[in-house]
Design a protein around this nucleic acid. Structure first.
Lengths: 230, 230
DNA sequence: CGCTATTTTGACCACGTTCAACCGCTGTGG
DNA sequence: CCACAGCGGTTGAACGTGGTCAAAATAGCG
């Protein structure tokens, strides 16, 4: 895969780079394809480099000692994985698993760092991304501390709509197949409560499902559920 | 305050910079002193610059719509505040309140960014710090999701011991006066449960208190409480 | 078509919150 | 000097959200 013709180049941290700079990036990377359920790396692995998603979807999650998982983020084209561990000199801090067939470019640590040394603008872009990630993570922490599962679920559905929603005859269709387990791991609840709440939402006519994809029927009412009073 | 003689310079993101570079930093900053309970900035304020703690202690916290607070971090000499908002172009994402008389240097946004443009090493140091912060925040999220309050409290006490502990005739004394409210906000629980658990810990002889400071008597046993089984 | 994985439902229970009262200390004004 | 307000801390009782455990139903897949 050539970076210059990568469909994700607009959305990536390399967006805005002149063509010749993008060209310098190419020899540093190796492109791999992954099938659904493949693991890109595990939490605890040494950090070998960064991973740039050219196409596809990846879930990032942490696992507890007793095997429970918490999904931190679902990433898609243009997003960079595993860079915080790289810059902090730590091992990988989460596992990355492909949830939709993907093409992902690996940027080996030293080559990547060398490239960054010559491209301060890209460093600033990465700094901006990482900052947003920290901010997001802090928000998630507050949500997990104070908000009910019901509210976290409503918010998650609206978030997913924002990231993966496609207009559909019935409503906004979330183009992403998550198991109930994954959805519950993304909001920090058990599968059972998530299932119960989701069927409540269905009975209230807020959402429906089609081909294992959730469709948001009444975003405004969901937004009310996601608001302070609940 | 001159950066070249700042007691925090070793611990700061400017550590390792040659003296002349540090000198270039000085005209960019203004030093302020703050008394306990003073607010440095509020969540939602426009991000005007970064704040470098020369001396003292500061709590960073987020507030919910209904006034509840969650402490994200307690910062001390050498730590930089408010930089994630700066790099992401957002408003301040948390409030910063002084919990112990402090001397804090303000680095105005444009001057600071200009300095960084000429000091890529400092940028990489910041990148490393921010990465660690993100990692920490992800860990906190997982803890908040799965661990009991009892366990979070035990871990917090050990963390505080690590950051602020001083050897004492009785044990490790945490040199930090936190109210019960603040301690509970730092672990994401109510004051009542925190009080109850803390008095359990006292009855079990794990900790004691003296002059409003917690003293860890049996770190090993606390560490057991902080481990998976509990 | 049988078998496994995923989802759904039910019953029960506990952790932690909420609400309320009370204690002990400190500072303040009559 | 004492009364009392105010604040931080402590304790008790009741409640409810959400987790656990178990079993059934449904869907996916060889």
């Amino acid at each position: 895969m050539q970076c210059t013709i990568c469909p994700a180049s607009d959305a990536s941290v390399f967006s805005g780079l002149p063509e010749n700079k993008l060209g310098q990036l190419e020899p540093l990377q190796t492109t791999n394809t992954y099938k659904k359920n493949q693991i890109i790396f595990y939490e605890g692995n040494p950090a070998l480099g960064a991973y740039c998603i050219s196409e596809g979807k990846v879930k990032l999650y942490k696992t507890t000692e007793d095997g429970k998982q918490r999904i931190l983020k679902i990433c898609t084209s243009g997003e960079l994985l595993g860079y915080a561990s790289l810059f902090s000199g730590r091992n990988e801090q989460y596992s990355a698993e492909v949830i939709e067939d993907s093409r992902i470019c690996f940027l080996e640590k030293n080559g990547f760092l060398g490239f960054l040394r010559k491209n301060p603008d890209t460093v600033m872009t990465i700094l901006s991304r990482l900052s947003k990630e920290t901010i997001k993570s802090h928000e998630q922490l507050v949500d997990q501390t104070f908000k009910s599962v019901r509210r976290r679920l409503a918010e998650m559905l609206l978030n997913l709509e924002g990231s993966f929603g496609k207009k559909d005859k019935k409503g906004m269709r979330i183009e992403l197949t998550l198991t109930r387990d994954e959805l519950s791991q993304a909001i920090g609840a058990t599968m059972e409560t998530t299932v119960r709440l989701l069927s409540e939402f269905k009975q209230e006519g807020l959402v429906t499902e089609d081909d294992r994809k959730i469709i948001i029927l009444k975003p405004a009412e969901l937004a009310i559920l996601a608001s302070p009073a609940f």
